[in-house]
């Protein structure tokens, strides 16, 4: 799977953190501008796939440090849990809840179950893409 291209390897090294940062940016602004969990997840997934192709599987797994299947499971759990707080307020499952959080130095931050849900989607998408791609890449060897 290693393509042995110096340019690709260098690019992989530099692009992975940049793309991951970009994906987080897409994730957090997604509620107001184009972006969101699906897109951000795909960007992050693609970033890891690029890294996988420029390095090798072991390196990709190492840089990922967590099994993509766990990412899927964690994402699903987070997504389901984000629906729970509504129940405690006597509302339907998945009713969005918003909190204002004052962070010293940064001002007010909006925190919501909706954001948690989007992060869940983000994790599931990364996990699914990487599970598929890594499995296939390993089968290739």
């Amino acid at each position: 799977m290693n393509m042995h291209s110096l340019i690709l390897r260098t690019a992989g090294h530099f692009l992975l953190p940049l793309l991951l940062l970009f994906s987080l940016f897409l994730l957090f602004r997604g509620h107001n501008e184009p972006g969101g969990g699906f897109i951000a997840g795909l960007v992050a997934g693609a970033a890891f796939v690029l890294y996988l192709f420029s390095m090798d599987i072991a390196a990709a797994r190492k840089v990922l440090w967590i099994d993509p299947r766990s990412l899927m499971g964690g994402g699903m759990t987070l997504a389901v849990l984000s629906g729970v707080p509504g129940i405690f307020r006597g509302q339907a499952f998945f009713t969005a809840q918003w909190w204002e959080l004052a962070v010293p130095g940064l001002g007010k931050m909006k925190l919501s179950t909706v954001l948690l849900f989007d992060i869940g989607v983000y994790l599931v998408v990364i996990g699914a893409v990487l599970t598929i791609m890594l499995t296939l890449a390993e089968a290739e060897d």
């Binding site: 969990g37 499971g73 629906g83 989607v121 499995t135």
Partner: peptide, 24 residues
Amino acid sequence: LVDFRALDTLGEIFVLALAAVGVY
């Protein structure tokens, strides 16, 4: 996606995860 029809989206990411597990 994440608010009005969140339950649908939940089902959709579940399908996605299932397909990935199937491949694996």
